[in-house]
Design a protein around this nucleic acid. Structure first.
Lengths: 330, 330
DNA sequence: GTGAAAGCGCTAACAT
DNA sequence: ATGTTAGCGCTTTCAC
């Protein structure tokens, strides 16, 4: 490995001049430039980023903290983030937590350590104090999930209203016995809001609440099928399912069809997120489109603002529109 | 932001002692230790990683370069990588290229820059010279895809043999007119091997090759459906499809069923990768399990070896076993 | 057990 | 247009 000093020696110039050539930060005569570039090539010189970063106290990297990347839903957000980041000369590092607090802490440390300039939290599971503390000293933005009452800004969706619309749609189509099946943790704000809407709409119409939510962490397809099976055994009157994710809806549909019941003729099913699963399923699943790409873009734009001027202590809650997409399953 | 110097001043010790406390690198008297830790707390001190990294020329970070993260197939590899990495005190950064050469270059630069200690290439699309050059100076490992003839080590699967088995299975079940539909680029080694096996098995049995491969980049579900539609129009004798990914197989099945043909009674379909799609599909799709988690673990273990002792110039090709998983679609 | 000091590789202010 | 030099924050060798 060669250093800027070696390049300088070989080219018979000072390290400052080499730096100028590399960064095109000041005028260098054509002759000198060529000598330096030749030396760089000869030594196969690569600037050591740690030197630069230490000196500038800036890495032009941002960290995206996400539960996991196996949900196609997240990948659109990340694409939005990356789009804006790259146009502004930032690189994006994706780190997965799988809900593990240790891993989360480790990655948060990368922010505190100045390994990255800022952080976007998708599917945030930090505690209130922690996120507030972090938000005071570092540029962070939440998206999709957020900690209610925290000072950190976020871009998200009105999950309550979206779920409200879905529920009203089911009821308008004549459904009266609607069960609810969540995905992931019941503690995340999206699920809290979805369940709140579920109950509110039922109460509003004087209909029965058929599902309690436990604290269990439900995965997609498998638990959709399993929970539907239990519910259908216990409550054969069910004529609709509200699933909080598309993949869970697919599991529910499979369970229904394995009992020789028809979707939507016998039982309606709605999902959430408008992922590929809701299109691939038979029948295609009524769902909610969240404009995830846009959410990613907006979150990154806000993060940039906070990085460039840290005094921008934006604590605002931003909500982007959604669309209920009616397909064949309801 | 506070520095080690400020902590030292407040605790009335030298920076060396503070460093010793932080890293538990040498004996420090209990009294001093407590003074230092109090100072650290008081100043809310966080070591600046850039200082450390510059000094040590080591970041304990590795980079995973991947086409995109929206394929559940990749996420298992990444989990394997992360598992081994974390047990060895390394962090994993996931970077997505979406096939963009510019982005790829940018991330490769992070390796050359010493921003990370090593790199794992999934779905590698680097040129032969580039990967060989990189391999000389930096610890890298390829997995799944690899550049044939390159010096860089890899962990992958014998796609030829796996495809061979799938094809023999189709033929053994009485199929004679088998079409082939690829996913992604035709230039990647996995697709080259799959297509080679497809043709070889057909030739071996004196059966017709029904599909040419163009250089087109095919995506999953959408192009599966579209290509199947064209093929079925042109060649109504087709009685089986060999798709190189599960999601493409789902698209093909949807097209078949939309023509009121049955899978597998009229037409068999097989996929690849044993992702969730092959279980969710109706009927469930015969596919190949690649032990992706294991591949990730092995690749990371090899990378670690190369990082710790760079003289380990392992150029070996490693191949892990696969299993053909027979389901309902064939 | 603790401190002084060198130096990792780089940039930028200042000098010429 | 180019060179000199200080210093970013940290670790580690060498003294004591």
């Amino acid at each position: 490995m060669s250093t800027i000093q070696q390049v300088a020696s070989l080219a018979r110039v000072s390290v400052a001049t080499v730096s100028r050539v590399i960064n095109q930060s000041a005028n260098v005569s054509e002759a000198t430039r060529q000598r330096v570039e030749l030396a760089i090539q000869r030594l196969n010189y690569q600037p050591n980023a740690m030197g630069t970063f230490l000196r500038k106290d800036k890495t032009n990297m941002i960290l995206v903290l996400v539960h996991s990347v196996d949900n196609p839903f997240f990948s659109m957000i990340i694409q939005g983030i990356e789009n804006i980041a790259h146009h502004n000369n930032y690189n994006v590092l994706i780190c997965t937590t799988y809900g593990d607090r240790e891993r989360e802490k480790h990655y948060v440390k990368m922010l505190r350590n100045h390994y990255v300039d800022g952080m976007i939290l998708i599917s945030n599971t930090l505690q209130l104090e922690e996120i507030n503390d972090l938000n005071q000293s570092y540029p962070i933005v939440q998206t999709i999930e957020y900690v209610p009452g925290s000072n950190a800004p976020y871009y998200s969706v009105d999950f309550y209203m979206a779920s409200f619309e879905l529920m009203e749609h089911l009821i308008a189509s004549g459904r009266r016995n609607i069960a609810y099946v969540h995905t992931g943790s019941t503690q995340i704000v999206s699920n809290i809001e979805k369940y709140r809407a579920y109950k509110d709409v039922l109460n509003k119409h004087g209909l029965p609440v058929l599902s309690e939510v436990s604290e269990e962490y439900y995965f997609g397809y498998i638990s959709g099928k399993a929970v539907a099976s239990v519910l259908l055994d216990e409550k054969p009157e069910i004529d609709a399912f509200f699933a909080t994710s598309d993949l869970t809806a697919v599991g529910i549909i499979d369970e229904i069809q394995s009992r020789n019941l028809r979707v939507p003729e016998d039982i309606s099913v709605v999902g959430f997120d408008n992922t590929i699963f809701s299109s691939v399923a038979q029948p295609a699943i009524t769902t909610v489109e969240l404009n995830t790409y846009e959410l990613g873009c907006k979150a990154m734009e806000l993060l940039l603002k906070r990085i460039e001027k840290p005094e921008t202590l934006d604590t605002t809650a931003h909500t982007l529109p959604f669309q209920v997409i009616k397909k064949e399953s309801s």
